[in-house]
Amino acid sequence: MSHEPLSFAGFCERAGVSERTVRYYVTQGLLPSPGAGRSARWTEEHLQRLQLILQLRDKHLPLAEIRLTLEAMTAAEVGDLVAVQRVEPRPSSASEYVQKVLAGMRPVAGPPGAAPGHAAAPAPHPPLARSTWERVPLSPDVELHIRRPLTREQDRRVQRLLTVAQDLFRPEKP
């Protein structure tokens, strides 16, 4: 890993974070100022701090709390904590999450901040076609599931089935 200071653009690219977000963290006091203009130096320490910010943010810690946490830490402590936190993969952003869901890969349920269960490389195949299921509740505990489209004959039989089933489960009059 190079320890040469980076340009702003290079720093953002290396961190995988937008320039706007990095500027915001500097203005909010989460990242130390790198200096002004051409003398600005984005160092390994900045990078480690940013990584820790992202990791803590993904655990849904408020930025104010992250700032307080970072203020009390030395550069070495930040590095140690980044290494520990790195064991847990970062959860996806909202748009990545949606892409996975729409591709038919529902991430595993878990508390906010938990890593999605399908964070591996993108699927090599095109997105799966979504099933179109119709649910027909018959009672609080019973429902029929029908996958559409159906052939005309199947549809006719399903309509007969529904008529009988709804009659069977009609609530009794008191």
Partner: peptide
């Protein structure tokens, strides 16, 4: 599907 696409659009450009 519509709601998820809408959320995805918001998330794609969501600044901090």
């Amino acid at each position: 599907g519509g709601w998820l696409l809408g959320c995805g659009q918001v998330g794609e450009h969501l600044s901090e």
